Simulated assay, not measured.
Amino acid sequence: MTVIVRDLRPGERADTEAFARVRHLALPWTVSTPDSVAHAVTHAHPAAHHRSLVAELDGEVVGTAQVGIAHDSPQPGQGSLNVYVDPRRTRRGAGSLLVRAAEEHLAAHGATRLFAWVLDEPAHRAFAERHGYRPSRSAHFLRLGLAHRALPPPRTPPPGVELRTAADYADDPRPVFALDAEVTADEPGDVAAEFTDYEAWLAETWDHPLLDRDLTSVVVAEGRPVAFSAACTDGATRYATAMTGTARAFRGRGLAKLAKSDSLHRARAAGYTEAFTGNDAGNSAMLAINRWFGYEIRATEVRHVRQLG
Rank of each mutant, 00 (worst) to 15 (best):
N283V: 07
L215W: 01
G189I: 13
F177R: 04
R89Q: 07
D190A: 15
A123T: 10
A200R: 07
A203P: 03
A285I: 11
T273Q: 07
L98P: 02
E162Y: 12
F228A: 15
H265S: 05
H39F: 04
V61H: 03
T165S: 15
E103W: 04
P34D: 08
A107R: 12
L106Q: 06
V41N: 10
V218G: 02
R268K: 14
E103G: 05
D234I: 00
A55E: 03
T233A: 08
E194N: 13
L255M: 00
Y295A: 08
V220D: 00
A192P: 05
L81F: 07
A170V: 12
Y84H: 14
P175D: 04
A275C: 10
H105D: 03
W206D: 04
P34G: 13
D72K: 09
L25Q: 09
E56M: 14
C232G: 09
E60Y: 06
T205M: 12
R266W: 09
V61P: 04
R13S: 07
Q75C: 11
E301Q: 15
F250P: 06
R143F: 02
G93H: 09
S136E: 09
V218A: 04
R224S: 07
V85D: 02
A285W: 07
D234F: 00
A14P: 10
G77V: 01
V99G: 00
D120N: 15
R291M: 09
Y169P: 02
A126S: 11
E17K: 14
P154V: 13
D171L: 10
P154H: 11
A116C: 03
T233F: 02
A44K: 04
L258N: 02
F276A: 00
L308D: 06
G309H: 14
R253F: 02
V67A: 11
E121W: 08
I297L: 11
D172T: 05
D171W: 09
I297G: 12
W117M: 10
D186M: 14
G271I: 08
D280N: 14
A170P: 02
T64K: 01
A166R: 02
A128D: 05
F195A: 06
V5L: 12
D15G: 03
H148R: 14
P209S: 10
T244C: 05
A26P: 12
R6D: 09
A256N: 02
T16D: 05
D212I: 07
R23H: 13
S36I: 06
V3K: 11
L106H: 13
V41D: 05
A270Q: 04
R266D: 01
T90L: 13
A38W: 00
W292G: 15
V67R: 05
A44I: 06
T184D: 02
G11V: 04
A231Q: 09
T233R: 03
